[in-house]
Structures are given as C-alpha cells and as structure tokens.
Write a protein that binds this DNA or RNA. Sequence first.
DNA 1: AATATTTTGTGATTTGCATCACATTGCATA
DNA 2: TATGCAATGTGATGCAAATCACAAAATATT
Lengths: 225, 225
Amino acid sequence: MQNDCRLCPMKTKATTMLSDCSLDQLSNNHLELKLKKGDSIIKEGTYSTNVIFLRTGLAKIHLAGPYNEQIVKIVKAPTYLGLPTTFGSKINQYSVTAITEAEVCYIDLQVFLSILDENKEFTHEIIQEFCKNELESFHRCANRTQKLIRGNMADALLDFSDKIFKSDSFILPLSQTEFANLVDTSRESVSRVLSEFDKDGIIRLNGRKIEILNKKSLIMISQNG
Amino acid sequence: MQNDCRLCPMKTKATTMLSDCSLDQLSNNHLELKLKKGDSIIKEGTYSTNVIFLRTGLAKIHLAGPYNEQIVKIVKAPTYLGLPTTFGSKINQYSVTAITEAEVCYIDLQVFLSILDENKEFTHEIIQEFCKNELESFHRCANRTQKLIRGNMADALLDFSDKIFKSDSFILPLSQTEFANLVDTSRESVSRVLSEFDKDGIIRLNGRKIEILNKKSLIMISQNG
DNA sequence: AATATTTTGTGATTTGCATCACATTGCATA
DNA sequence: TATGCAATGTGATGCAAATCACAAAATATT
C-alpha cells in the first residue's frame, strides 16, 4: 500500500521541510502497514535493506541475551528504526516488536540515503537523535547496574509516566516477564515490588493498569537505589 | 598550537577526501594538544562547544553513577568524541579521560558542522560510527546485566586483546578499581577473578601485564556467564 | 460454557557477590 | 635509601535478589 507522504500527519520538523521531489520519492518507495500488538517489525537475524519509520504506536527493541530475551528500550512514535542494521551488516542485530497497535512505513534504504544527502536539516535531526540515544544508553549503563531493583522499577515507571504516556495513569503495555527483561530482574521480583509500591500507597495497581499516586516517593526510591 | 591538517597522518577514509578548502578551515580552527595518562579530555558538567578528535591513544568514557564512577567504555584513536554533548545541551553529560598518552584536536563545533554539511562521505562515516556504537550499547546492555562476573571479566579481557591492543599480551591501562567500574563489579572481585584465571592457567598475570594463554577458555567462560 | 494456557502472587531456600577488615606489595616523593 | 600513600591480595560475613515451588487469576481456545 502506498500513501502520499505529503499528506502524512506524522512528519517531523525536518521532514516537513523536504522538497516535493523528495516527498514524491518517498511516496513511491515505501510500504505502509498497520500492525497489531505483538506484530514483529524487525526480526533479529534476518536480512534487511529498509529503514522503518514508526508512524504511530509503541514498540520494544529487544535481543537474545545469553539467558533471557533482553528488552533494551521502549520506543514511541514518531521515530526511525533499523538504521544501525541497515547501515551496517544488513543482518538485523536486534528485534523490534509492536507492543500496541502501530503504523509503520518501510522505506528503501537507498531512497532514505538520497533524501539524507539532499537535506541537511534531516541529517542533523537524525544525528541529534543518535546523540540523544547515546547519552541515554550511557545513563542507562550507569544506573541499571548500580541501582537496586526498587530503584530501577521506580525509574521505569517514571519513564512510562513522563516520557511515554505523559500521564500519571496508564496501562502497562508489557507483561511482568517483559517488564523484568526491561528492568534486569526476575518476573517474581517485578510482582513483589509492584505489590509493595501498591501497599505503600505509591501506586494504585489494578491488573496492568497503573496509577502513580506519589511521584515524589518514586523519585526518592529512584535516587536511593 | 595549530597544525596543518593536510599533513595529519591520522585521517580517516572520509577526511582524506575533504577538499583543500575544508582542510584549511580545519587547520585554522582547531587546537591540538598532547596529553599524558590521566589528563582530562572532557569533563562532565562543564560547558563545551567543541568536537574532539582523538588522534592517538586510549581514553575512558565515564560518568558519575548513583554510587560509583561508571566507566561506560574504552575508546581508541582515531575517533571523534563529544558529539552528543555538542549537539545537545552543550553541557557535557559525561567525562572522557586519557588512560594512555594521547593526542587530541579540539575542533570548533561550527567548523565541524560546516564540514559535515559539505561532505557526504564524512556524514556517512559519522552516522556509521553512531550505528556501530548503538549496536554495541545494545549488546553491552544484554550481556553485562545477564552474565556473571567471570563472564564479564572474560569479555573485557577479550575486548582488550582483540579490539584495543590486537595482541594476546598487553598492559592493562586501568587500575583494578577502574576495571571494576568498567565491568560492573567490586575491586575485590576483580582481584579474585584475575587470580583465579591466572591459577587456572588461562592468563599469565604480572602486575598489570596480562598475557592470554588460553583464549578458548576465556570464550567458554564468556558464554557460560 | 468448559477446558487449556498463559499470567500473576507469594512463601521458602539458595547463592553470587558486595562489603568489611586487614595484611601486603608496589610506587612516588622527599 | 627511607617514608608515605595508593594499589592489590585474601579471608570472613551479610544480604539482595535469583531460583524453586506452588496456588490462584486471568485469557485464550475449542
């Protein structure tokens, strides 16, 4: 299915500035798909020559660790996915899977590159994105390994609240097992800590629905490790 | 001190292709320094509008974690440093410190950007570098948190051997405390595991000099966690 | 609606490693 | 060459969290 990219409501700052020519090129060289929760967007180990634009929805980036499936991070539309593999070995080094309903555009790598070459704003935007990701990965590296479980869980909840949903109340788009693989702990610990937070009145827990009642406490817990 | 970048022996593929004009611009807008072990290259929390080119030597990228100084990774010349902070907040989010003698060039951000804009090859090289780093950070994320200490130490030793020194025999450019902060463990555990590896004939340890005697064993240990 | 399957809750036990404590060695500076 | 401080080696102890083992809910499937 092809759409007119000129009509796409999800354009970023830079893509808004693309020339009609570039936009036409995009329109004619991309495949747009609607996905449902659980659908695979990128699969580790497979061949790929596409860059993927996540138009709407949430996805998890994950890969096989030595013992468990590791969830590296949760990403939110709009964002580009798969540049590392497309630029590098062409074999995907990680998987991306929708964790909500989502819409994605598969963009041919050559088309993507030619647009990149033509458009400085777009290039800067992509580089900025990489820079942001690199900083995030540094901080994650320092925090995840040094903090205790309660601290990491608090961080994750604050992330969902502040960055993903921008609301104190949300439905966790992950099972406890997945949550554990994101936060580097065991499924049982996730269950226990969530119950504790609920018992202490820090969150209200109802199935996968979470309401943050006391953000200050969560921040405290995050800082104490 | 200013040097003629046209004579720089450490140019990468892309910088070799820069126009004389760009190279002159570089030559006139950079500061070259010789550093000794322990000298700071980038300091967390300080203001910066430079990109840094590490011409020769090794450096550690590190930042303050909630409890310890966390070493994120060891980098080797030639490489660019400081792009994330320069592109983003202008306040350095992490430190970089020489761990051997090193030579660095401080390049004004605006000059760096104008060269980036002028030169597609160079842009691609930078983006590729980011992609490689992102993949590395994903793998680190999955491995460091899932493996046991012996596995992580084995990984680190293999990294030094294969990627940094390209030799089975090298002098660790880190104290055990630093090594611990790189490998996410305690100083005492580093000491113990290194002794174990020595006792088992996997490495020969002599002060900070390490000789890898049995790489196969190290790989085994790495895989067993 | 009935059955199977996945997800979640929670106690009991085990364990890898941090922490503590101190001895020893190496290295720098007077 | 002596003196001081930083880096290392190694045992004893404590603890956070993994693992094990089920029960109970919740979802999916027929």
